[in-house]
Structure formats: C-alpha cells, structure tokens
Design a binder for these strands. Structure first.
Lengths: 117, 117
DNA sequence: AGCTTATATAATCCTAAGAATATGTGTTTG
DNA sequence: CAAACACATATTCTTAGGATTATATAAGCT
C-alpha cells in the first residue's frame, strides 16, 4: 500500500491542478497552458518542472515547442490508495460514528460549516 | 466532475496525511495521535481543525476525550475524480486533442513515441 | 546573419503555513 | 473546591514556496 504523499503535495497547488485538468483532454505546449491559466510563462514552466520531477507529466519536443502530457502511473497509484480508503470509510467507521453521534443529544454538531467560503 | 482542490491541499501536509492513515483503522483521540505522530499536541489539534473544516473528519466527545474519525464523503469525491482521470490517461483519446490543436502541415507523427506506464 | 518565437533558468520579493511555547476552557476526581 | 487531565486557542517565529521581472538558450524565419 504505497502512500501517495508527494502526489498530494504536487496537486495541492491550484495552478498545477489546473494544468492537470487541462491535460486531461490531451497534450498541450507551454504557451497554450500559460494563456489558458492566468499565470506568467515562467510560472507555468516552473510548475511543469515540478510536475515532471514528480512523474506526473512527460514531455515531447517538437520544433521549438514542448508538449506536455499526463503519465498514467501516478494516477493509478493515487486511485488505488483512495479507492481502498473509500471502502474502509464506507464499511464500518461511518456507521459507528453516526450511531454514537445520535445518542449524544447535547453535543455540538459534528459537521463542519464550510470550507473557505 | 467536482474538483477536489481543497482535499488535495489538506492532504498535502505529511502530518495530516499521517492522521488520515491512522484513522483508517478506526477512531482515535487527540492524545493517541499526538504520541503516535511526533508532533506536539497543539499541532495535532490545529491539523485536526483543518481536517474538520475541510469535512474530512468528524468528532465525537466522550468525557474529556474527543475521538476523531474519517468522513466518507470527501473520499468518495476524490475517488470519483481520480478514477475518471485514470481511465482518461489509460485510453488513447488524448491523441484527438493533439490533432485538433496542432495542425502543423509539415509535421509528421505528432504522437508520443511510446506511452510508458 | 539577424530577428522573432518558445521555453527554461536566475534572482528577488512576499505571503502563507507549520512548529513550539504558553495559556485558556472544560471535565473528571478527590 | 482544588487539582489533574484532555484538548483548544493565542502568540511568536521561522521557513518554504509561489509570483514577477529579467535574462539565457535554442529553434524557425527572412
């Protein structure tokens, strides 16, 4: 059971997540990504470097352009990790917690308000 | 289709990821987590607060102890997101976007040489 | 050979976030 | 009621990392 810690750190940045979501529909060069996302070109290059070091993307040079695309392996690993966790939480922890929560009438709500907005 | 950006940000921190991995085997109180991970107790409380705000964990108060456990919903969302991406990268339809976007006349095969996994 | 395009790297600045210490709040026990 | 325990919050400090500007490298184009 590998822990995809680095993958989480890489995808935590909104710009890098935006890059990955744009690469879902196919490979793109740096300039296309820089104009799509509202970040300057050196910023995109730096984020792509981080994504490449983490093994999330691969490069293909064509002329003076460099096309980046997703590598499937880290997403397979991530899927395995999350999928297992999903079934663990669906199985028993959830039920146990809600059961006990119902029998504590005076306690405050276990549900959070909202995330950042 | 939902973007689990906040979930990535939350799980990017190694301490919080460690908390989640320990909660996989069931609920724990703050002291148990603080002694398991090598972080001081206020640090654990702060990370648990972040996890709670993000909806990843829920609390159950028993006496003076507070037991934290995982909530299944955000992991379901994360699993859906990653699972979809897994199949997109496994497939061959990223070639389509390549053909649409890059119509350089003189360029021969715009495909990646090999698709290493 | 210059000139433009496409991308990478370097240097700087700045803000956000984690860690530790100290303290506050509530709960159990004597 | 006081003392000890379990946890949360406040404060301070420090560092990591993202954004921007400027520059370097390299490939077309005329």
């Amino acid at each position: 059971m590998p822990s995809p810690g680095p993958t989480f750190e890489v995808l935590a940045d909104p710009t890098r997540l935006g890059i990955v979501e744009r690469l879902r529909s196919g490979e793109r060069n740096v300039g296309a990504l820089a104009s799509s996302l509202s970040v300057c070109q050196p910023g995109i290059s730096r984020h792509l470097r981080i994504l490449h070091l983490a093994g999330l993307v691969q490069v293909r040079a064509e002329g003076q352009k460099r096309f980046y695309s997703l590598r499937p392996q880290p997403f397979r690993d991530l899927d395995d990790w999350v999928h297992e966790l999903r079934h663990l939480t669906e199985g028993r922890l959830d039920r146990l917690a809600t059961l006990v929560e119902d029998r504590a009438p005076g306690s405050r709500s276990a549900r959070p308000a909202r995330w950042r907005g």
